[in-house]
Design a protein around this nucleic acid. Structure first.
Lengths: 324, 324
DNA sequence: AACTGTATGTCAACCGGTTGACATGTCAAA
DNA sequence: TTTGACATGTCAACCGGTTGACATACAGTT
C-alpha cells in the first residue's frame, strides 16, 4: 500500500504538504492541491486510518453491545444506529454478548483496547460497578446506571396502554409474560404500569416471568404452553416483546385457540414483522429510529465533551391491529 | 490511559520486558511476569490495539458489507459470522450499503483505509471491475466474481425442490416471485431451477420480478397484489425469500385467499421467523450457520496466505410446514 | 524600502506499541 | 573451567501519519 511518503515523493513535495492537502490546513495553492490529488488517485492511495487514529487519539469507531443481532428488535435498532452514526462519520463495531457475562466483559475490554470513541450498551448482564468503572463515553438503552445518560421509552405508559385496551375489549382473566425481571431494566416498568393499571380496576393479572436463560423460541413456547394449560380461562395476554407475542400466536394456533376470538393479545416494540404476521399484531410501538437517533446524538455530544441530557424517555404509541 | 511505559516504570522493568510479557516471547521469569501483570491490573492497563495494529500491520478486524442488517436474513447471517469470527479473535465492522452504489463504494474505501484484515461482501451493487481491483482478502456470498472465493448454496436445487413439491401437491397454475434478476447473483439460479423443472413437466410458470429498488414491504405488497389480480387462478407460489413469502401470506389473508387451501406457498432461506408465523412457512432451508462458518474459515485462510477453495456450495433442504 | 499574506520546505517530536541486535549476568550441567 | 540455557537490559528503528516551530521565497501593498 502506498504511504504518504510515496505520494509526496511522486508529487515532488514533502509529506507535510501532502498532510496539509489531506487535512485542509495551512496555505496550499490550487495547483499543488490538484497535483497531490492526482498522484493520490494514480497510486490509489488510501490514508492509513490506523496511523491517523494513533496520532489524533480518535478512531471514529463506536461499539455496539447487544445480546444478539439475530433478534429483530436489536437488528432494527442497530440498523438505525448505523444509519445515523454513519452520517456523522462514525463506524460501528458489532458485539453480540449472547447474554453471557464473560463475553460482555471481553467485549468491553476489546472496545477499550481498540480505543473506540464511545459505546452503546444494550446488553446489561454485569454488575452496576463494572459499568461505573468505565471512563469512555457511553450511552445505555433501557437502563439507568449512575450518571450514564440513557435512552428509553415510556415503558410504564406502554403497560398502561396495554392494560386499558385489554380491559376495554372485555378481558377479565389477564396474563402478562415478561422477560427476566431480575436484570434491573427500565423495561420492567412495562410490567409495573400494566399490573398497577389492572389492579386499579380490580383485576389481578397472572404474571409469568421468563428465566434468565430463556431467550429462544423453544423456551418461549414451553413457558407459554405451561401458562395456557395452567390457566385455561385466560382471555387476554400482554407479552413484553413482539417475538414473544408471535410465539403466543403460534402456540395458540396449535392448540386451536382463536386470537382475537378467545384470547386478545398485545405485543411490545412494533418490529417490522409485527404488521406482517397473521393475525397482524396489536402492539405498543417504540419509536426505534428516534431512539437510535437520540442515542447517536447523545454519544456524539459526550465525545465532543458537551453536557448532555441524562434522561431521554421517548413516547410510545398503541398500534391496534388484529390480535385485539 | 496508562501506556506500556507507565507500566514498565511502575514495575521497575523496561518496555521491552513488558512487551515480552504481553506477547509471550523470549525468556521471562515467572516472578517478573507476575509482577508485570499485577501492575497492569493495578493501573487498569489496556494495551493500545491501534498502536499494535500499526506496527504489526494487522488489525484483526473484518468488514461485513450487507444491504441492511434490518433484514432478518442478513441479521442471522451476520450473527453467525460474528459468532465464528470472534472465536478466531476477529471483530466485525458493520456496513449497511442500503443497496446504494455510492455507499457501498464509500464503505469499501473506508474498510481499506482502516486496514481491515479482510471483508465479507454480501451486497453487490457495483460493477465487476470494481471488485476485481480490490487486493484485500475477500469472500463473497452468492456471487462469483473472477477468482474471489465465494460461498453459496445449491440455489438451482432449491428451485427444483420447490417446483417438485408444488407439482406433487397438485398445483398447475404456478407463479414465481423473485428479487431483481439483473444483479448477476447466484440466487437467480433458484429461478432457473424452478422454471426448468416446471417446464420439464409441461407447466409454464408466471415469473414476477421485483424492480431493483424494491426492498421494502410496501413494494412487495404492491407487486404481490398486482400478481394476484392479474392471475386470479394461481394455485401455487414460490417466493425467493421468506420475508417475501410472508408478504404473500399477508396479502392473501387480506383478500380472503386461503393458504394452503387455495394457494400453496413456498419460501426460501428458512429464517427463524419462518417457523413462527401462521401458517408456518414451507421453505427451502439454507444452512446459514454452515455458510457463515465456511465463510469465516475461508477468509481466515486467505488472510493467512493459504490457498482456499474457490467454489463453496452448500446443500439446501426442503422444510415442509403448513403452507403447502 | 518595509511589510504582509501566501506558499512551500525542513526538521523533529509524538502517538504507543513491536522487534531485532547486542550486552550482561546468573546458575547449573558437562 | 567451560558452556549454554535463562533472564533481563539498552538502544534504536519502524509502523504511517500529524503537527508545531521556524526558514525561505515571492508577489503585492503601502
Amino acid at each position: 500500500m502506498a504511504t504518504i511518503k510515496d505520494v509526496a515523493e511522486k508529487a515532488g513535495v514533502t509529506v507535510t504538504t501532502v498532510s496539509r492537502v489531506l487535512n485542509n490546513r495551512g496555505y496550499i495553492s490550487e495547483e499543488t492541491r490538484e497535483k497531490v490529488y492526482r498522484v493520490m488517485r494514480e497510486m490509489q492511495y488510501q490514508p492509513n486510518e490506523i496511523a491517523r487514529s494513533l496520532s489524533r487519539k480518535k478512531t471514529m469507531i463506536l461499539g455496539m453491545i447487544i445480546p444478539t443481532i439475530a433478534h429483530p428488535f436489536f437488528a432494527e435498532l442497530t440498523n438505525y444506529i448505523e444509519k445515523h452514526a454513519s452520517k456523522l462519520g462514525y463506524k460501528i463495531l458489532l458485539c453480540n454478548s449472547r447474554m453471557d457475562q464473560g463475553k460482555e466483559k471481553e467485549y468491553i475490554d476489546m472496545l477499550t483496547s481498540n480505543r473506540v470513541d464511545g459505546m452503546f450498551m444494550s446488553s446489561h448482564t454485569l454488575e452496576v460497578d463494572e459499568y461505573k468503572k468505565l471512563k469512555q463515553p457511553i450511552i445505555t438503552f433501557d437502563r439507568r446506571i449512575a450518571d450514564i445518560p440513557y435512552v428509553s421509552s415510556e415503558n410504564e405508559q406502554g403497560g398502561i396502554y396495554a392494560a386499558e385496551l385489554l380491559l376495554k375489549k372485555g378481558c377479565r382473566r389477564i396474563a402478562h409474560i415478561t422477560g427476566n425481571l431480575g436484570l434491573d431494566l427500565l423495561s420492567n416498568q412495562r410490567t409495573n404500569g400494566f399490573v398497577k393499571s389492572l389492579r386499579g380496576r380490580g383485576v389481578e393479572p397472572i404474571v409469568f416471568e421468563l428465566g434468565p436463560d430463556v431467550f429462544d423460541s423453544e423456551g418461549y413456547e414451553r413457558v407459554i404452553t405451561e401458562l395456557l394449560e395452567q390457566y385455561p380461562d385466560i382471555d387476554g395476554i400482554f407479552a413484553s416483546g413482539d417475538i414473544l407475542a408471535m410465539n403466543v400466536i403460534k402456540v395458540c394456533m396449535s392448540k386451536g385457540i382463536d386470537i382475537p376470538g378467545r384470547i386478545k393479545l398485545i405485543g411490545y416494540d412494533d418490529i417490522e414483522m409485527a404488521s406482517l404476521v397473521s393475525p397482524a399484531l396489536t402492539t405498543i410501538r417504540q419509536p426505534l429510529e428516534e431512539i437510535a437517533k437520540r442515542a447517536v446524538q447523545l454519544l456524539d455530544g459526550l465525545i465532543r465533551g458537551e453536557e448532555v441530557q441524562h434522561d431521554n424517555v421517548l413516547p410510545v404509541t398503541l398500534v391496534e391491529r388484529s390480535t385485539t
